[in-house]
Amino acid sequence: MEQEFIKGFNNGYLLAQYEPELLNKLLPDLKPGNNYVDGMLSGKEQHDIDKIRQPQKDVPSNNTPDKNKKDIEWER
């Protein structure tokens, strides 16, 4: 039983990552209740969470130096 959930989770995650349109076509026909389908739905949910948490490449972080700013040397 746990094996089926894991297979469904992995397949749901991969479909959400690489074939989201196909997964969205399948979802309305999936009926929760068996371990594989429950795992598939959980895999999709986890992918959605991971996607939100993933740092955006286009948004500069506070830790990256700004190339337009020059280093200021302070006199003592």
Score class of each variant (00 low, 15 high):
residue 3 Q to T: 08
residue 44 K to G: 00
residue 60 P to Y: 04
residue 28 P to D: 14
residue 72 I to L: 05
residue 17 Q to T: 11
residue 38 D to R: 12
residue 31 K to I: 15
residue 12 G to H: 00
residue 55 P to R: 04
residue 61 S to V: 04
residue 67 K to A: 15
residue 33 G to C: 04
residue 31 K to E: 11
residue 25 K to P: 01
residue 65 P to L: 06
residue 42 S to Y: 10
residue 4 E to F: 09
residue 39 G to A: 05
residue 33 G to M: 07
residue 36 Y to R: 05
residue 20 P to V: 03
residue 6 I to G: 07
residue 64 T to I: 12
residue 18 Y to N: 06
residue 33 G to V: 01
residue 25 K to G: 03
residue 73 E to N: 09
residue 64 T to S: 12
residue 69 K to T: 13
residue 36 Y to T: 11
residue 40 M to Y: 03
residue 71 D to A: 14
residue 6 I to W: 03
residue 4 E to M: 12
residue 11 N to L: 08
residue 26 L to V: 05
residue 67 K to W: 06
residue 76 R to D: 15
residue 15 L to S: 03
residue 75 E to N: 14
residue 23 L to N: 00
residue 56 Q to M: 05
residue 48 D to F: 03
residue 52 I to E: 14
residue 75 E to M: 15
residue 5 F to Y: 09
residue 54 Q to D: 12
residue 25 K to Q: 13
residue 8 G to A: 09
residue 20 P to Q: 04
residue 51 K to G: 02
residue 11 N to C: 04
residue 76 R to G: 14
residue 54 Q to F: 02
residue 50 D to N: 06
residue 19 E to G: 05
residue 48 D to I: 01
residue 27 L to Q: 02
residue 44 K to Q: 07
residue 61 S to Y: 00
residue 41 L to I: 12
residue 66 D to C: 05
residue 53 R to V: 10
residue 65 P to S: 13
residue 36 Y to F: 15
residue 31 K to Q: 09
residue 66 D to I: 02
residue 9 F to N: 04
residue 59 V to E: 15
residue 37 V to Q: 09
residue 60 P to M: 04
residue 53 R to T: 13
residue 34 N to D: 15
residue 3 Q to K: 12
residue 6 I to D: 13
residue 9 F to M: 06
residue 65 P to M: 04
residue 35 N to E: 15
residue 68 N to I: 10
residue 24 N to Q: 14
residue 24 N to L: 11
residue 61 S to K: 00
residue 68 N to W: 10
residue 67 K to L: 10
residue 6 I to R: 01
residue 56 Q to R: 14
residue 60 P to A: 09
residue 32 P to A: 06
residue 9 F to G: 02
residue 21 E to I: 12
residue 70 K to V: 11
residue 46 Q to V: 08
residue 35 N to H: 06
residue 38 D to K: 13
residue 70 K to P: 02
residue 54 Q to G: 05
residue 33 G to N: 11
residue 31 K to L: 08
residue 41 L to R: 03
residue 51 K to R: 12
residue 17 Q to G: 03
residue 54 Q to E: 14
residue 18 Y to Q: 07
residue 2 E to T: 06
residue 4 E to I: 05
residue 74 W to K: 14
residue 53 R to F: 11
residue 22 L to W: 02
residue 57 K to Y: 10
residue 36 Y to I: 10
residue 31 K to A: 14
residue 66 D to L: 04
residue 74 W to M: 13
residue 58 D to A: 11
residue 31 K to H: 12
residue 65 P to V: 10
residue 56 Q to N: 09
residue 60 P to Q: 07
residue 23 L to W: 00
residue 30 L to K: 09
residue 5 F to W: 12
residue 15 L to V: 02
residue 8 G to R: 01
residue 18 Y to L: 08
residue 47 H to L: 06
residue 3 Q to I: 11
residue 7 K to S: 15
residue 56 Q to Y: 02
residue 15 L to Q: 01
residue 3 Q to N: 10
residue 29 D to E: 11
residue 55 P to T: 04
residue 42 S to D: 09
residue 52 I to A: 13
residue 31 K to F: 02
residue 70 K to N: 11
residue 2 E to N: 12
residue 33 G to H: 06
residue 44 K to F: 03
residue 36 Y to E: 15
residue 44 K to I: 03
residue 58 D to F: 09
residue 62 N to T: 15
